[in-house]
Design a protein around this nucleic acid. Structure first.
Lengths: 187, 187
DNA sequence: GTCTATAATAAGATAGAC
DNA sequence: GTCTATCTTATTATAGAC
């Protein structure tokens, strides 16, 4: 069944988020799924491959989400606003996967690591180009694009480490706070 | 000798930074020190205690560094600038320890975890009070203090994850970039 | 597709000699 | 203070029955 495969991934995401990749055993994942650990290997060839699948899918969806957020928006400042909001929203809505994608890269093999970092770099490049355009058009003050792009992305990503879906603020409100802070900071 | 104890800690910091706490074995630390793994236990009762010592000392020094940065500065905006600069400087100068302090808390026992989080909260409180004062004095625009304090600290802390001591920018320059961005963002 | 059983290895930690 | 030797336990992963 494909259902079990999905279930394994869901349980793994929860455990990797809570305990970390290395501190989580295949046995714990199996217990969470109500199966024996040997059965995991019917669906995934290794623990590392399970991690890679999680990260790979998350990065794919993250990129798709950004393209969606930017679709049909033309003004540069509007595009940055949309990119920032989209980034925050995706990270808060898929908190656990994104936390893992930002903290468990060291668990990957060298080849898998390269693939994920390549995707991450392509994603960051879009933000860097947007900031660069903003500076050229005089919307933003001159600044170090690389450092500020890292700063902005880390900032928004960090929401995923403390965000509580049942907490005081909704995703949209938090996105608004970050958007205001960042756009002020860039001017 | 006290020298060996320090050496163990230094090697452990390097390995925990590079590979992560759970992915690093006592044996690797011992090899790095040129001793056998059993000898580690003469200096530290357990691997977890070694992690706790690293985090504990880092937090102590971080707090002392902040108090130093703020000493004899009275104007609120100047105090925030000094706090931000001090935070960035400490995190870039002691990159590895700070990275560990922000990523390996899950390796601690519950009691040790509580002690470290208590220190971290006290540190954050100082920033929150400063931002609050800035708002009351009309230096900053009204905002969500908790969220922005997390944002500011994460932002500056994040430098520790990509900073290269031999790279293009010096610590002071990076601190300046963050200071400008954050102060703009708060206004 | 899931199970039991087990292989192969490595981990954290301790005992006791020197 | 450091060593060798060892205990105990947990881990990833595989083999083969059902």
């Amino acid at each position: 069944m494909l259902k079990t495969k999905h279930n394994i991934k869901d349980i793994a995401v929860g455990l990797f988020y809570k305990k970390g990749y290395f501190a989580t055993s295949i046995n714990e994942i199996a217990n969470g799924c109500g199966i024996r650990k040997a059965s995991i290997y019917y669906h995934y060839p290794s623990k590392e491959d399970l991690l890679f699948c999680i990260l790979s899918e998350t990065m794919k969806d993250l990129m798709a989400h950004l393209h969606n957020s930017l679709a049909e928006i033309e003004d540069t400042e509007d595009r940055i606003r949309a990119a920032v909001r989209g980034h925050v929203q995706f990270h808060l809505n898929r908190q656990k996967e994104n936390f893992i994608a930002n903290s468990e890269l060291r668990g990957l093999t060298r080849e898998h690591y390269r693939i994920i970092v390549k995707k991450r770099d392509a994603y960051e490049k879009i933000f860097q180009d947007l900031i660069q355009q903003g500076i050229q058009q005089g919307v933003f003050s001159d600044c170090d694009v690389k450092i500020l792009s890292y700063a902005i992305l880390t900032l928004c990503t960090s929401g995923a480490s403390w965000f509580n879906p049942d907490g005081r603020l909704a995703v949209g409100e938090i996105a608004g706070i970050y958007e205001k802070f960042i756009l002020n900071g860039l001017k």
